[in-house]
């Protein structure tokens, strides 16, 4: 979703309503990345609300309003990394219910459900870091360069990691 630059400008000046407006424009993106990265809605909600507060406190430091989206995504990525580091067992399992709309009763629901289950099963085999890259590059559509900037990692490393992860996923899904 496109972010309103004027609202970002006003948010930088301390306008809470403008900040809330800008956040609302990007909230779904933030939640999706957090959910894919962490695998469960509870932790995803925590890190998104932490990101909201940190972004509000730090928005005065944002130099370029056009960079708001990658900037806040970077805050989210750092928060996700910290949360992942707290997982004692290097948790990979996903809470599948958090990804599915269980009230879906439209035509073709069974076929969609089996496709979703296949995707989630394949995702579960990835590490949280790999899922984070998938969330940014695949789900959110960031380029390799943008993904590397958000994760503060070398572009070459992100590129090769993404390449390997996609290969792994595709092999699983095409089985």
């Amino acid at each position: 979703m496109v972010v309103d630059i004027e609202a970002v400008r006003q948010a930088r000046q301390g306008n809470q309503d403008s900040f809330a407006q800008v956040y609302q424009q990007i909230a779904e993106d933030l939640y999706r990345v957090a959910l894919y990265s962490l695998g469960n809605a509870h932790d995803a909600q925590d890190v998104v609300s932490e990101t909201f507060i940190e972004a509000y406190k730090g928005i005065r430091n944002l130099r370029d309003e056009n960079s708001f989206k990658p900037w806040i995504m970077r805050i989210l990525s750092i928060r996700c990394k910290r949360r992942i580091s707290q997982y004692i067992t290097g948790r990979n399992e996903l809470d599948i219910d958090d990804f599915l709309d269980l009230t879906d009763d439209r035509e073709g629901v069974e076929e969609r459900s089996s496709q979703k289950i296949a995707l989630l099963t394949a995702l579960e085999k990835l590490t949280p870091q790999e899922r984070q890259i998938i969330a940014l590059a695949v789900v959110q559509g960031y380029t390799v360069r943008e993904t590397a900037e958000i994760l503060n990692a070398p572009q070459g490393t992100v590129s090769s990691k993404l390449h390997r992860t996609l290969k792994k996923l595709r092999a699983d899904l095409e089985k």
Partner: peptide
């Protein structure tokens, strides 16, 4: 290819009410 696969999953992810802007504000 992967983005098309994930579309079906991603479209269904809805942000919970607890993360609405007015509540966080």
């Amino acid at each position: 290819w992967m983005r098309k696969q994930f579309q079906v999953l991603t479209d269904e992810i809805k942000i919970p009410d607890s993360l609405r802007a007015d509540i966080l504000k």
